[in-house]
Simulated scan of single mutants.
Amino acid sequence: FDADLIENDSISENNHSLVTAACISLVDDFENDGGNWHFRGGWGITNLFGGYQSKTAAHSNNGVLPYSANMNATMTLRQSFDLQKLDSLTFTWWATAYVESGKDFCYFETSTDSLTWIPVSTISNDRLEYEFYSVTISPEQAAIGQRLYVRFRFVSDSKNEEIGVFIDDIQFYAKLRKMPVNVKTVTDLPQEWRLESNFPNPFNATTKISFILMKPAQVDLSIFNLKGQLVEILVDENLPPGEHHAQWQGLDHASGIYWCRMRVMSEDGRVFQASQKMMLIR
């Protein structure tokens, strides 16, 4: 999937892609092959554990258990995205993991040059049940005219290897700046929960963070630095459906880029996670 394709009338259905008047969407369920991805250091396709409502999924060690020590394995999308043509770009996926807690991690990372990568989301649950993850990137969060690259990266330490990470049903959902011609219109993808971009952004001292819940849920809204270290917990409580707001005071923190992560667990046990990039300027 390439954002340059918005100039075309259609995209091949063999890639599970749709072009609409409002969006481009690609779903990769790994049932055929992993041709959309470049695997390095361990990643591969396996039916060892099963995918999310399917037979196969991507695994951090190509189905070999336990995973190896001292891994630094990457699964990089072969195509990149031109954000100048997009209003926003949302990545969603289902993942399950069983790794050494606090020692081994799987990151979803982005880059504008394919050399320097920034962790955006972390897959770190310790039970073999699939959870839903979501990350949204908007033009304010990337330099206009630059291309965006994405990958999953799994790292392990020197001991106590476990089962690893399984990822399935990766979806890329792009809202276009211009409406293409000669295409069908479809309904936007439904979302049960949503984390809005903070305002203002960039900000000097205080910024407002809004989020929407469609069901009663336990909400964890936290701030992290670029190293993935927890900076502050803004919300940690059960909340009713509706729109909610939180404020972050950045007076005691250095200038730079931070991530706001929302993790939601609904009453029926479903887990939703989303992240937004914020820039503090002092």
Rank of each mutant, 00 (worst) to 15 (best):
Q191T: 07
F30H: 10
R270A: 08
T185A: 05
K215P: 01
Q191M: 07
S158V: 01
V235S: 05
G164M: 03
S68I: 02
P241H: 06
S25D: 10
A73Q: 11
F166H: 06
V219P: 05
I118K: 13
D126N: 14
S60L: 04
D157T: 07
D168W: 07
Y130W: 07
S210N: 13
R177I: 09
S197L: 12
N225Q: 11
H38E: 14
S124A: 14
C260N: 07
Q191C: 01
L18E: 14
S101M: 04
E237K: 14
W117G: 12
I123N: 02
S114Y: 10
G256K: 09
D252P: 00
E129S: 10
S80L: 03
V235C: 08
L280V: 10
S210T: 12
V231I: 15
Y67A: 07
W248R: 10
W117M: 11
E129W: 01
A97Y: 07
Q247Y: 09
K159G: 02
T122A: 04
F272V: 00
L189V: 12
A174W: 07
M75T: 08
F211Y: 15
V99Y: 00
V165W: 02
S124W: 11
I223S: 03
S134N: 06
K215V: 05
I223L: 12
T96H: 02
I209C: 11
K184N: 14
A69L: 06
D4E: 15
S88M: 02
Q276S: 06
D29M: 03
N32W: 02
A246M: 02
I257W: 03
D9T: 15
E129I: 11
Q276D: 02
N36E: 13
A274F: 00
Q273P: 00
T76P: 10
Y173I: 12
R177N: 14
A69C: 08
I11R: 05
C23T: 13
F272I: 00
I163E: 03
N238C: 04
D82H: 12
N204I: 04
G102Y: 06
D29R: 10
S10V: 06
N8D: 14
A274P: 00
S210F: 00
S60D: 10
S121C: 05
I118C: 02
G34C: 05
F30P: 12
I6Y: 06
V155I: 15
K159Q: 08
L18A: 13
K85P: 01
D2W: 09
S114G: 01
L195N: 03
A254V: 08
S158R: 04
F172Q: 03
E196Q: 13
Q276C: 00
C106V: 08
E232S: 13
I209Q: 15
D28V: 05
A142L: 07
M278V: 12
S12H: 09
M265E: 13
F108K: 03
Q191L: 09
F1W: 10
S114D: 13
D157C: 04
I209A: 12
T76A: 15
D113K: 10
V150F: 05
F154A: 12
L280S: 06
N201C: 04
A142D: 02
S255V: 04
D268A: 06
